[in-house]
Amino acid sequence: MSKPEFVYTTYIETSAEKLWQALTDGDFTERYWFGHRVTSEWKAGSVYRFAKEGAPSIEGKVLVFDPTKRLAYSWDSCSPEAKRERTSRVTFDMEPRGKVIKLTVTHDELDEGGVTFRNISGGWPMVLASLKSLMETGHALEVDPPSATQQEAACA
């Protein structure tokens, strides 16, 4: 039987360059990703980290860095309840469709029935809806993040 994975597709009216920047620039992610800033050197193999007000929430390594086409990173949640779960993987695929970008997020290598799977299944639709609104209207959504991400502990 296949491991659980989460796949979500959305269509955003923007350019591939702007969307790529929104995925990799901390000033952007802070606006649509529940206040979490991403930092990284953005080379394959380099580390990246999301942090909110200085407290780390997610970290991992950059697996694929192919600007305007594909971004992938490993995903370790800093939440204590997800500590024993294995490292999962997030892949962003961007395909231009005329004036619109088709963005597909695949989150896989997840633990069956795990906390991470539950949290990301609730979280991605919020983050991606907020991203789409920010790109198209200049306003991100004010959404309540999934409860577990509020009780963050520092990553090791």
Partner: peptide
Amino acid sequence: ENGTVLHAP
């Protein structure tokens, strides 16, 4: 949200 639809011929 915007009053515009995705341009998707």
